[in-house]
Design a protein around this nucleic acid. Sequence first.
DNA 1: TATTAGATAATAACTATTGTCATTCATGAA
DNA 2: TTCATGAATGACAATAGTTATTATCTAATA
Lengths: 146, 146
Amino acid sequence: MKAAPAEFRALCHRHRLAATHQRQVIYEAVMSLPGHPSPEDIYEKARKSIPSISLATVYKNIRAFLDKGLLQEVSLHHGSLRVDANHDPHHHLVCTRCRSIMDLDEAEMVPPRFRQKLPRGFKVLRISVDVLGICAECASKKARRA
Amino acid sequence: MKAAPAEFRALCHRHRLAATHQRQVIYEAVMSLPGHPSPEDIYEKARKSIPSISLATVYKNIRAFLDKGLLQEVSLHHGSLRVDANHDPHHHLVCTRCRSIMDLDEAEMVPPRFRQKLPRGFKVLRISVDVLGICAECASKKARRA
DNA sequence: TATTAGATAATAACTATTGTCATTCATGAA
DNA sequence: TTCATGAATGACAATAGTTATTATCTAATA
């Protein structure tokens, strides 16, 4: 066991997670990687510190971090392809609990505006807003664990 | 062969797709299903008309429809889990061509606002904006097929 | 020391998706 | 209408991503 900064231990303690070496290496891998790494990316990075680490351990700990709120998912709907036949511009109401998706007509939102210029020649085609929250159904089903 | 409305044949012709029976049934399945159906949903629905239809055919035609713009994907990043360690509120610049994701600080956007009340007790947690477009790199790499 | 809860590694299992290929079909030309 | 030809289909193999299972290990506690 090496570094094990007190910060990480505190972070784990705060979230009721045991501060294991693997967990720390995985967490540091996430933090050190640019952009939004995939489990595979994280695995490759973590292997540099712990060559014997298992991909399943990476998955399991990512899930633990997500469940506890240390990390969040870039997109809630990555499990399966969903098609959208609605050609009218619209946004989505997404339930973070059951992952259901409802349409929200574009007219129901004030058009998004930027304060600054967008970076380096990015050419905007359209803007898609996900309103994340808890749908009425899920809300009525009692509160669950965080 | 049954219905085969001229509309669908015209639609296909306009998009350079052969107007096959399966294709029509798949398209109608998408249109008739509520929300944002998955390939499996569409498959189940289509089987009611063509019990022998293959799941691969459903996938291939969904892809064809997406490529030709008859349908669109609910989310561009559904392939694999991506984690986000950025706890500062932010949005995303998503390239529809290479699917790269860049962060956009929340402060760079005017906070989204609703014009109307949200439906039936939906409790908003956060709002995630995807700015879809073409990144500078892709833009410089010539125009591709639609 | 014995017990126990939680974590890991190996691997099996599962789900979503795509590729291969022989057969069949849609389309436009004759 | 017939025909040639490329596109589409269906069966199935293959792959990627992810989760489940389980035996083992470890650290903390009784």
